[in-house]
Write a protein that binds this DNA or RNA. Sequence first.
DNA 1: TGACTGATGTCAGCCACAGACATCAAGATA
DNA 2: TATCTTGATGTCTGTGGCTGACATCAGTCA
Lengths: 194, 194
Amino acid sequence: MGRWEPGARERLQAAALELFATRGFEQTTAAEIAQAVGLTERTFFRHFSDKREVLFYGQEQFLQAFVDGVDAAPPDASPFEVIAAALDAAASFFPDERRPHSRTRQIVIDQNPALRERELHKLATLATVVAGALRARGTTEPAATLAAQSGATVFGIAFAQWIRDGEMRPLRGIAADVLRELLTLTGAGVGRMG
Amino acid sequence: MGRWEPGARERLQAAALELFATRGFEQTTAAEIAQAVGLTERTFFRHFSDKREVLFYGQEQFLQAFVDGVDAAPPDASPFEVIAAALDAAASFFPDERRPHSRTRQIVIDQNPALRERELHKLATLATVVAGALRARGTTEPAATLAAQSGATVFGIAFAQWIRDGEMRPLRGIAADVLRELLTLTGAGVGRMG
DNA sequence: TGACTGATGTCAGCCACAGACATCAAGATA
DNA sequence: TATCTTGATGTCTGTGGCTGACATCAGTCA
């Protein structure tokens, strides 16, 4: 036994999610979250750069999975084939058991514009990193950024569907479907332009 | 002549951009911006919901142009044909004279994560509204959201290129090129999936 | 003339967040 | 065993973003 209860960060995250879900994000102060787990406000801000971050901290592994998916794709794969592989790898980070947790978390996020901003920023960061990974394997711009951003878009839509009430399919399959839909859509032909 | 100098909002926006560009966003307080144009901090926050918003307020016309582009597209146009038309309409809101202003503004935004978050949020809002306009003309989900988000992505990439040092082409042409690139990319084929 | 309106000012307060310094248990070291 | 060092935490204090409540006061309109 240490001097402090271990896992302060995780306890803060759990308490924050619960408080946000019940009272609302703005109605919950950082001091209250800290107090709920026997810590002080100052300690809260040592673990999280700002109040919103308590809901987003710790997604490096997910990002890494996405990048690993890119790196593991065969060298001759087209950018969107690479994205398909990356989506597949990333989806494995959201097994069905995690669905309820993801749902409540998403409800909280959807109810607050500031949290939505942070979420979009994280998705954009993901796209930026993936674009870099694509460039590292030879894809040029703007193809790399286009493919990466499209991948993030597909993931976002698929995730939203995965969370939806009554949805039973695993994220993996949903993402594949959404990507397929994007590809058929763009294949529908764009005659005139400019 | 009224009691107050007219155009308080615009003067605040101009002063804010200048101060942000010279001192930096975080190093500039809302009170300083207000004081620079002879107003108080309280008045600043009556015009803008928060400090960042001073850089983003007033883009309804741009959004409207995008939506008008969607509505004006022929009824039988495919979603991406509609997006092409919308991009075209939106690009007209950024004539070449506006390039220098857009550049300094973008430099400020790029240097601050909080401002980047707000920018992403605005782009996401654009995509949401455009998706609604697509649905209104019969496009189903997830096609509507996919097309709208892709349009926002293309616009973002094109805009970044338009701003780039040395770039001389009008936004309209750049956007058309980026969209074309996206379409060829997705046409490159995705064999395996899931 | 007098009520009414709308943009502004004033004042007081909450809370997010940060710097500086103290504390104190656990492990390392002498 | 005594001391040192380290790292997570607490305490104190301050700044700035942002808000509610109320006052002001030039123009407008009844």
